[in-house]
């Protein structure tokens, strides 16, 4: 009994001393600022800033590689404290952006060319005969973005991905994951969007989807500069204020929605 206690205590003592020596002599010098900033960043490690966790982002901030306002969960007070700690001028919090899937051509609205059979992932599906959706720009609905989202903010609604803006942490992982490139970051404060990414001419869009932009330009006139044409596709310019309440009702393609 006593031997056991002594042995275990001895092992504990030796390990403790080894650890203490290690901490004393093998430690890596780290800028103490990094620790301070990491703590101020709340430590959620969500990845929304584009870095591997809060520690990585703090390192980048201290090294001057990134501005401190990329963290979407940071309160203005915390941001001010970080600026103070760094000794730089207070920087304003960036406007929160959320991801938006620019397609609402779900199973009822959009045509399919065939029945896809294979891996349930969008990139894989897109490689088979160009994807089953008749529209080359439409959401394929095989959930690649949903699986990429660390916040569980994406839901499949009737075969089309939809981002819940209140859950979005602005990490852009879905933007990178979408093989069709139809997920875009938009200001969280904006509520009127054009839910279509098709660059096909209006006649083609009409044939394959009931809720696609047909390039009629009606919205560009109503929006007074806040909507511009990119070829045959109307695109919202989020830098301009867009407060025309009539837009959704006036869009013949039914792809402008206020959410």
């Amino acid at each position: 009994m006593i031997t056991s206690i002594l042995v275990v205590s001895g092992i504990g003592l030796v390990c403790g001393v080894a650890l203490a020596l290690g901490a004393r002599y093998l430690s890596v010098e780290e800028n103490p600022l990094i620790g301070t900033v990491t703590e101020l960043l709340l430590g959620a490690n969500c990845g929304a800033c584009g870095y591997a966790g809060c520690g990585g982002y703090a390192q980048a901030i201290v090294a001057g590689e990134a501005p401190p306002n990329r963290c979407p969960s940071c309160t203005p007070e915390a941001l001010a404290q970080i600026s103070a700690a760094l000794g730089i001028a207070p920087i304003e919090a960036a406007a929160r952006e959320v991801a938006l899937v620019l397609c609402r051509g779900d199973d009822e609205q959009a045509q399919k060319r065939f029945v896809y059979d294979g891996i349930t992932a969008c990139a894989a599906a897109a490689a088979v005969g160009g994807g089953d959706k008749a529209c080359r720009y439409g959401c394929l609905g095989y959930g690649t973005c949903l699986r990429a989202c660390p916040a569980g903010a994406i839901e499949m609604v009737n075969g089309v991905a939809r981002v819940h803006p209140e859950l979005c942490i602005s990490c852009r992982k879905c933007v990178a994951a979408c093989p069709r490139g139809i997920i875009r970051m938009v200001p969280a404060a904006s509520h009127t969007h054009i839910f279509c990414s098709s660059r096909d001419p209006g006649a083609t869009v009409r044939k394959v989807c009931k809720v696609g932009c047909i390039g009629c330009r009606i919205c560009t006139r109503l929006a007074e500069g806040a909507i511009t044409m990119d070829g045959t596709l109307a695109v919202v310019d989020y830098k301009q204020p867009l407060d025309n309440e009539e837009l959704p009702a006036k869009c013949p393609g039914k792809c402008i929605l206020k959410v």
Binding site: Q111, F114, V115, Y116, D117, G118, V128
Partner: peptide, 10 residues
């Protein structure tokens, strides 16, 4: 028959 066809990898 078009839209009914199943398309997948061999």
């Amino acid at each position: 028959a078009g839209p009914e066809l199943v398309v997948g990898v061999s």
